[in-house]
Design a protein around this nucleic acid. Structure first.
Lengths: 146, 146
DNA sequence: TATTTTATGCAAATATGTTGCATCTATAGA
DNA sequence: TCTATAGATGCAACATATTTGCATAAAATA
């Protein structure tokens, strides 16, 4: 994606355009998988850890990215769909976590089923799948990166 | 649940019966919601933090409890169904997280849908719902405890 | 360009989770 | 019931993750 689009996404979400935010958003959109804070720290050593954390929080609050439920205890994030905005966040996602390579992919095509729970209000619905991804099923054993 | 049942559950899962394990398992079974490590530390101040972490890991390995995917970045745990054991863990769960009171409930009756992803092997399937629970929908505003 | 609002970097604090080791205890067997 | 032993506990220390305060720098607005 080109710089113009990156900038317009930031502005649309009421975020000031800074180097850090441009670089991080670029990376989110171009990488096909969900990102851990660890991976972001390693990728963007030029920015302070604190700045990266604040960037992630700002992006999450404004609906640019969403945090992904994970039982490993580390926060993970993925880029939101175009339809997400400050007040119009689309709250249903399907994610697949590969136990071999550790990568989490967003599966956009699948529909998260609606569940009926009388008395409850459901605003968000996340389906988390885990197993072995296509690449790891095909290729020989890969190194595991949490 | 009475002490005899607690002890038999521990033994059935190849776990030595100790005070800490009895108390923690009791609490898991009697509380209707999923527990954070934070809540366990606060509840069981008489036991060392390390012991509680090791208890959680032992319970998880033996299939007494399961960790619950959560986007907040904290580990959460819930008691497993009767069908779970050291080698026979049921790897599909539905959980509901209330945004008001912060509690996570296990919804045992619902079926997690099977998703077809060609080339992928799916070994686990978790559906995470979020919104407002029945109690918070009925009662006036409650305090939020993460 | 001047002003204001917000982002950044650094230091430090807090939270979360693990490891090593000495000691104690639950369990099984004599 | 007593004893041996594998495993559980507590303590100290470590490792990593995340947040907060504050001074400075930069972006947006007029």
């Amino acid at each position: 994606m080109d710089e113009g689009n990156i900038i317009s996404i930031l502005k649309k979400h009421e975020l000031r355009v800074t180097d850090c935010r441009r670089d991080v958003l670029h990376y989110f959109i171009d990488s096909g998988h969900a990102l851990s804070t660890r991976e972001l720290e390693e990728t963007f050593g030029q920015y302070d850890r604190v700045t990266l954390y604040r960037t992630l929080n700002a992006f999450t609050e404004k609906g640019v990215i969403h945090s992904i439920p994970d039982s490993s205890g580390f926060a993970r994030y993925g880029a939101c769909h175009d339809t997400c905005g400050p007040g119009t966040h689309r709250h249903d996602h399907v994610h697949f976590k590969c136990e071999e390579c550790g990568k989490i992919e967003c599966i956009p095509s699948e529909q998260v089923p609606m569940v009926n729970l009388p008395g409850y209000t459901i605003s968000e619905s996340n389906l988390i799948l885990a197993g072995t991804c296509e690449a790891c099923n095909t290729l020989p054993q890969q190194s595991v990166s949490q």
